[in-house]
Design a protein around this nucleic acid. Sequence first.
DNA 1: ATAAACAGCTAACGCGTGTTAGCCAAAAAA
DNA 2: TTTTTTGGCTAACACGCGTTAGCTGTTTAT
Lengths: 196, 196
Amino acid sequence: MARIKTDKNISRKDVIVTKAASLFREKGFKAASMRDLAEAVGVEAASLYNHIKSKTELLHELCFSVANRFLQKIDEVEAEKISSIEKVEKLLRFHINEMIHHYEEVYVSDREWKHLADPYLSNFQNQRRIYRKRFAAIIESGIRNNEVKKIDAPTAVLIILHAISGIESWHRSTQKISASELEENMVTILVGGLTQ
Amino acid sequence: MARIKTDKNISRKDVIVTKAASLFREKGFKAASMRDLAEAVGVEAASLYNHIKSKTELLHELCFSVANRFLQKIDEVEAEKISSIEKVEKLLRFHINEMIHHYEEVYVSDREWKHLADPYLSNFQNQRRIYRKRFAAIIESGIRNNEVKKIDAPTAVLIILHAISGIESWHRSTQKISASELEENMVTILVGGLTQ
DNA sequence: ATAAACAGCTAACGCGTGTTAGCCAAAAAA
DNA sequence: TTTTTTGGCTAACACGCGTTAGCTGTTTAT
């Protein structure tokens, strides 16, 4: 009888959620089966249900824990007394680091949220929409202050957020530049693209 | 007995492939069922098999037809006698327009290729790797000629390609700016980010 | 030491999946 | 007009899925 191994302060559920992130990232939510997950965890499929309610619950947890971290950060950044472009750069760097250090979760939240079921789905979409509007508002204020080129702010947000998800390719690549080099390159190109 | 409607020069198979692109984009390859597809086409599921070999064949066709268009374009661009940054801009504009006008196919090829089976999978991955290397080589030559900032070329490619896939969000948004405005904004930000 | 709570197991369920076989009508070719 | 080819249909298959029931061993608390 194989038990799920845990250290202190890491519940068995957390172990399952983490493995789920890895599996959902690798295969996609629909293609990853509970039997796959069970094997990754080292247990029979049915045993998982002593710790979780459903497969979808795993997706909820992943998507919303990621979303909450970003919402919390934008709260923090908005409140700071710095220029708009500095706010953009802070958010950008945060996104990059989240994508580097919590790759699997962030990736899954980004790509697999479609498979959430209502009411979580609408909820998630709303949060996302609002987040992007707030991000765009920062850029717009940067345009008004002549810190940023006259561009369409929602388009800029879209470019930034999707560019960041490209870090996926960096993770997969065999000859990686260092994480900090990656961060600096991305900031150079993207912040450089907004300013003049 | 409902027949699949076709105009001249559009085979019934093409109708199926096109509907499949739309469905795979909407639900994801795994989540889209052949019964869904049949309904979209206006026919029973089994009838599809008079025109196609398998569900996966649909994915092959989509992925490789998109990939081939990009490979053909980069052949063409590489051969032109223009500056490196102009080559980058040409490729960028081509990508943007493909994403705008062949949204569903390009999106599916981008996001769902993981579900290809070998040998198509390795093949596709190879083509992708090579394409990106060629793109990076153009940027590197731009750096050598001082047309482009001193940045990591593979990172630049990754940013550009993923930023373009953000056009997905533009398609979904209700208050769209025009396609040409979108194109100009993206070029401004991305080419601007590489140069100066 | 005993009881309660926890965490694993096997077996099985109902359902949706991709796909095939076999048949028949409509369209195209003769 | 007859024949052949094409493109539908219904029925059914085998399989993998998420999940539940019921049981047993193990850990924790009393």
